[in-house]
């Protein structure tokens, strides 16, 4: 899902690179060795990873906004603390991921500038609004659930810093999905208003969550090198099906109805969903989702209004360094 908008043709086959080195590199990857920052790597590997890791980082940071929207209105102190801790975790995940991306040779500032300029993408799901408290439960249950499904295989991806960042992320992720599900459980056992709130949230988030896994395999063109280089370990459809099969019984347990009247179980017990409206997905990726403009505006505002603070810190550091040099000279 962090590769939703990666285009095709990185042109790797057309690069003139040492064939022996490329073969040696592929042999290492095939042997499940980790590639580290100073190791030789194809230019296309570096490029594709930089994009994937940074888009993952952008997603964590933008993802703070829809959930952050409810911190000041969380309905109990326990929920308030849990939600603040969860959103803070997401910030931390963004930090780990930017750190990993930087080892590939692009600065965080450049990566963030690309996002703020609309040139780099983040996961489509965060362009939807959180309208009720049940949305917070739904995001934890479904969005984090989908992310976990994607992140666990990434703990074994070929690039060392990314794999290690993902291990850290997965360790912290454990309470996120549980928190979300627990919120939904409480709602589902609550008042009629709360039950309706839960069902309404599921109705609005189900299809966008399915779209998170990216276009269907037959449409998605970039997967070959990503799979060969062990950056992507399962296909979009594989992950999406796995997610649906895990989640549908959970929805039934909550007494909720999946908003897909055409969904059926096949002989193997898998839940087969109706066709997804990829029009909506493409529109959202192109910037025409409900919240794209708001999300970008919020991040730009934080960045712009924070400039004087960052400049002050830099100015002080310079003054301090000069004073220390002057003192040392005395």
């Amino acid at each position: 899902m962090y590769t939703q908008a990666l285009n095709t043709s990185d042109g790797d086959d057309r690069n003139i690179e040492d064939a022996a080195r490329a073969a040696a590199f592929q042999a290492r990857v095939d042997a499940e060795e980790r590639i580290e920052p100073n190791d030789w790597m194809p230019a296309a590997y570096r490029k594709t990873l930089t994009r994937q890791i940074s888009q993952h980082a952008h997603s964590e940071i933008v993802g703070m906004l829809p959930e952050g929207n409810w911190i000041t209105r969380a309905p109990s102190l326990r929920r308030k603390v849990a939600l603040l801790a969860k959103v803070q975790d997401e910030c931390g995940h963004g930090l780990y991921l930017y750190a990993a991306a930087e080892t590939l040779g692009t600065s965080r500032e450049e990566l963030v500038d690309a996002m703020l300029a609309g040139k780099a993408k983040y996961s489509s799901i965060f362009n939807y609004p959180t309208l009720t408290w049940a949305d917070i439960g739904t995001i934890g249950w479904l969005v984090d659930g989908a992310a976990i499904m994607n992140q666990i295989p990434l703990c074994r991806c070929s690039y060392g810093p990314y794999a290690r960042a993902m291990i850290r992320v997965c360790k912290e992720e454990s309470f996120h999905q549980r928190q979300g599900f627990e919120i939904m459980l409480k709602l589902s056992r609550g008042t009629d208003d709360q039950k309706a709130m839960a069902q309404d949230a599921l109705n609005r988030w189900w299809w966008p969550v399915l779209m998170m896994f990216g276009p269907p395999d037959k449409v998605s063109q970039h997967s070959d090198t990503s799979t060969k280089w062990r950056i992507k370990r399962f296909s979009n459809d594989e992950l999406r099906q796995k997610f649906v099969d895990a989640t549908v019984p959970q929805a039934h347990f909550l007494g909720l109805t999946i908003p897909d009247p055409g969904m059926k179980q096949d002989e193997a017990g898998r839940w087969i969903h109706s066709p997804i409206d990829w029009n909506e997905f493409n529109q959202v990726l192109a910037g025409n989702g409900p919240c794209n403009r708001d999300r970008m505006a919020a991040r730009r505002k934080a960045h712009d209004e924070g400039a004087w603070v960052r400049e002050a810190a830099a100015a002080y550091a310079e003054k301090r360094a000069r004073r220390q040099t002057a003192q040392a000279a005395e």
């Binding site: 940071i61 906004l65 603040l84 924070g306």
Partner: peptide, 17 residues
């Protein structure tokens, strides 16, 4: 907590939280 997601730098978002 109102600063969450809006701080001048990510490191500061963590600190204020």
């Amino acid at each position: 907590s109102e600063w969450c997601g809006h701080a001048p730098a990510l490191e500061e978002d963590m600190a204020l939280a």
